[in-house]
């Protein structure tokens, strides 16, 4: 099995960026577990939405090196800088654009791999505002406002053989999401789950039905 190392990072200059935590490590473990499948699709374009510290996409860049290009977005300007910094520390070459999800990508553009560790905490709707650290976790109703918006766009940004990995919390009611995605032409698989104090987390993989 190809092992996925946790990249070097230093957020000391970026106090408004989400510090990698249990959810981040679950994501890395899930990507490592699914690596043989990822290698098999021979991706050329990899994208992370809401890159934060940038360690997830940098970890993928350390595996796929110059066989792929790496693109990521975050609404938080400090997260974009932090990701560039993490990439540099690990000698990866990652493009980062400050934007909301993938709203400024041209219609025909597709990615082979998309990863998203969304703001998944159930909060009041009015906490989803601004571009600060609250945006890294505040998910509004069911903790799904941002995830649902993203998943709605997935059909237009994922290549036909592509795969998308998203993190969910038990409170997000994943079965509801899986049902909607099924109707939208996607298969879904939970590839890893983990209980940590106060949270039950899942990594779900989506791909287009053929």
């Amino acid at each position: 099995m190809t092992s996925l190392q946790t990249p070097l990072y230093n957020l000391s200059e970026f106090p408004l960026v989400y510090e990698p935590a249990e959810d981040t490590h679950l994501f890395l473990d899930a990507l490592e577990k699914d690596m043989d499948n990822l290698l098999q699709i021979k991706p050329v374009t990899i994208c992370e939405i809401g890159c934060g510290s940038g360690i997830l996409i940098t970890a993928l860049a350390s595996i796929f090196k110059n066989t792929c290009c790496y693109f990521c977005t975050d609404i938080n300007p400090q997260a974009c800088l932090a990701t560039k910094n993490t990439a540099l520390l690990n000698k990866a070459d990652i493009e980062c654009v400050q934007m909301d999800l993938t709203s400024c990508l041209k219609a025909q553009w597709r990615f082979d791999v998309i990863i998203f560790n969304p703001p998944y905490v159930v909060t009041e709707e009015n906490e989803i505002k601004g571009n600060g650290l609250n945006r890294a976790f505040a998910g509004g109703k069911k903790g799904r406002i941002i995830t649902d918006k993203f998943l709605k766009s997935l059909v237009n940004i994922l290549s036909d053989n592509g795969v998308c990995y998203v993190l969910f919390l038990k409170d997000n009611i994943l079965v509801e999401v899986e049902k909607i995605m099924q109707q939208n032409g996607f298969c879904s698989t939970v590839i890893m789950e983990r209980k940590i104090p106060g949270e039950h987390l899942y990594i779900c993989k989506f791909n287009k039905k053929h």
Partner: peptide, 14 residues
């Protein structure tokens, strides 16, 4: 920003 990135960006969200 690389020109690869320029190739995929639009302002259609305005």
């Amino acid at each position: 920003m690389k020109l690869l990135t320029h190739n995929m960006l639009t302002s259609k969200c305005i």
